[in-house]
Computed example of a mutant assay.
Amino acid sequence: MPPKQPPQRGPTPQVAYGYVPHAPGAQPVHGQALQGVVWMPAPIPPPNCPPGLEYLSQIDQMIIQQKIELVEIIIGFETSNRYEVKNAWGQRIYFAAEDTDCCTRLCCGMDRPFTIKIMDNVGQEVIELQRPLRCSSCCFPCCLQELEVHAPPGTPVGYIKQTWDPCLPKFTIQNELQQDVLKITGPCIACSFCEDVHFEVLSLDEQTAVGRISKHWSGIVKELFTDTDNFGVQFPLDLDVKIKAVLLGACFLVDFMFFEAGGGGSQRMGVWG
Rank of each mutant, 00 (worst) to 15 (best):
I74E: 00
I74W: 02
I74D: 00
I74M: 14
I75T: 13
I75K: 13
G76A: 10
G76N: 05
G76P: 07
G76T: 09
F77K: 10
E78W: 09
E78Y: 08
T79W: 10
S80L: 12
S80T: 12
S80H: 09
S80K: 14
R82Q: 15
R82D: 00
R82N: 12
Y83M: 07
Y83V: 03
Y83C: 08
Y83A: 00
E84H: 11
E84N: 12
E84I: 05
E84G: 06
V85N: 06
K86M: 15
N87T: 09
N87F: 01
N87G: 14
A88C: 13
A88Q: 14
A88H: 09
A88V: 10
W89L: 15
G90C: 12
G90N: 11
R92M: 08
F95E: 04
A97W: 06
A97E: 14
E98F: 04
E98D: 10
T100N: 14
T100A: 15
D101W: 06
D101Q: 00
D101V: 01
D101C: 13
C102F: 11
C103W: 09
C103A: 13
T104M: 12
R105E: 05
R105H: 09
R105I: 01
L106T: 14
L106M: 14
L106D: 06
C108H: 08
G109N: 11
D111M: 11
R112Q: 14
P113Y: 06
F114V: 08
F114I: 09
F114Q: 00
T115R: 09
T115D: 11
I116M: 15
K117L: 07
I118D: 09
I118E: 00
D120V: 02
N121W: 01
N121E: 13
V122P: 05
V122K: 09
V122L: 04
G123K: 10
E125F: 05
V126S: 01
V126A: 02
I127Q: 00
L129N: 03
L129W: 04
Q130K: 13
R131V: 08
R131E: 10
R134N: 03
R134C: 08
R134A: 06
C135D: 15
S136F: 07
S137N: 07
S137Q: 07
C138Q: 07
C138N: 10
C139G: 07
C139T: 10
C139D: 09
F140Y: 12
C142L: 13
C143K: 05
C143P: 02
C143L: 11
L144W: 05
Q145G: 04
Q145V: 06
E146Q: 12
E146V: 02
L147W: 00
L147A: 01
V149L: 07
V149I: 15
H150D: 01
H150P: 05
P152M: 04
P152D: 09
P152I: 03
P152N: 05
P153R: 04
G154Y: 03
P156S: 07
P156Y: 09
P156T: 00
V157Q: 02
V157E: 01
Y159E: 02
I160N: 08
T163A: 10
W164D: 08
D165W: 02
D165Q: 09
P166V: 11
